[in-house]
Design a protein around this nucleic acid. Structure first.
Lengths: 195, 195
DNA sequence: CCTGTCACATACGATATGTATGCCACTTGA
DNA sequence: TCAAGTGGCATACATATCGTATGTGACAGG
């Protein structure tokens, strides 16, 4: 086994893990790269060599978190037999996952500011494509009205992520979650052929 | 007339205007306060005296832009005789206004990162309250299903603002706008008692 | 006319990012 | 096995920005 490459991969993982903690707790701007790397037992030299700059590091962290969210949402959606219910379940899963402070801070707040519009990220784009495919299938089924699949997927995803931000900063998140999910399902049902 | 206070107000406006340009063109993080204030014919001394810190300046800028958006949306909504159509028109107005690069960069991207969840901002809160009132009225009318008004208002606003980001970064914004508006209206109609 | 206050300017210190350079371990080829 | 070279990472430096602490000049009030 090539010791060289595996050690590099390990260091990359260490840096990403350390950055994930730091970005979540202090925010992207306030997180110091010296502290980051020191906590990982490395220096900024390793960081710049692996990720180019601070933005690159954030991109790697966002990609990791986003992939985890997408995988979870997909698994939840697949568990619901019905395709339409699966779409709703995916939305609900996204909302619940985004209630994690780490996700909110890194993916929803700092991510767009530093990396630009989320719909252009590779990870989110993958998720949007998946939702889009589901919607296209439901339109062919005759379940949904002939709406633009891309726009519909984007609206659902955007509403879900935004909802998580709102719930988390509300006075009583536990109470708001079910109400919000109900409203979200109602909203999505606007695409249905028959209410 | 008190020359003292009016001059201070003028300087505040000059700084906000200068910051608005700088934040829009370079982003919040990259915008230098020295350049900002120099362009306004002042120094950072004035800035810190008036706004406390860089965040305070951004808050003032965001509040100004947000107020302009809310006023425009409200006027558009009022012009539509029907309350329900007014709600849709307000949403459309928000989407269109958010297509302005200045709004996107400052309010949608940097704002949340620096100031936190938008639904907690005084300006956005005002807008949410307005939408919430409209929705409550429509529920009493029997036009809308008995959904939680706060959650519904938040979902509509979030979807609209997110849609603007998406449209702007799409390959052909002019073509995406009508499709998105159609999908948005369909989505909102999920709250209607009868489709 | 004199004095005090206040809005703003100036000077300073701390800290963070990005780059350029150097070093050492590991890989590679004979 | 050994020697040369590559490259991953550490170190040192230059630059720039924020926030604070202090100074100053003009306007307001008596």
């Amino acid at each position: 086994m090539s010791t060289r490459l595996t050690k590099m991969a390990e260091n990359r993982e260490k840096l990403i893990a350390s950055a994930r903690r730091a970005f979540a707790q202090q925010g992207y701007a306030a997180a110091s790269m010296d502290s980051l790397t020191a906590e990982a037992g490395l220096t900024r030299g390793a960081l710049y060599h692996n990720f180019g700059d601070k933005r690159g590091l954030l991109a790697a962290v966002v990609d990791q978190i986003d992939s985890e969210m997408a995988a979870y949402a997909k698994s939840v959606g697949a568990r619901a037999g019905d395709t339409w219910l699966g779409l709703l379940a995916e939305g609900a899963a996204y909302i619940e996952k985004a209630l994690d402070p780490e996700v909110r801070r890194i993916v929803l707040l700092d991510g767009p500011s530093v990396l630009g519009d989320p719909s252009q990220w590779p990870s989110q784009n993958k998720c949007l494509q998946s939702t889009r495919n589901t919607i296209e299938q439901l339109i062919k089924d005759g379940t949904l009205k002939p709406v633009d699949p891309e726009a519909a997927a984007m609206l659902l995803n955007g509403a879900a992520l935004n909802a998580a931000l709102w719930i988390a900063s509300s006075a009583n998140p536990q109470a708001m979650l079910p109400k919000t999910l109900e409203a979200f399902n109602l909203l999505a049902s606007g695409f249905l052929v028959k209410g």
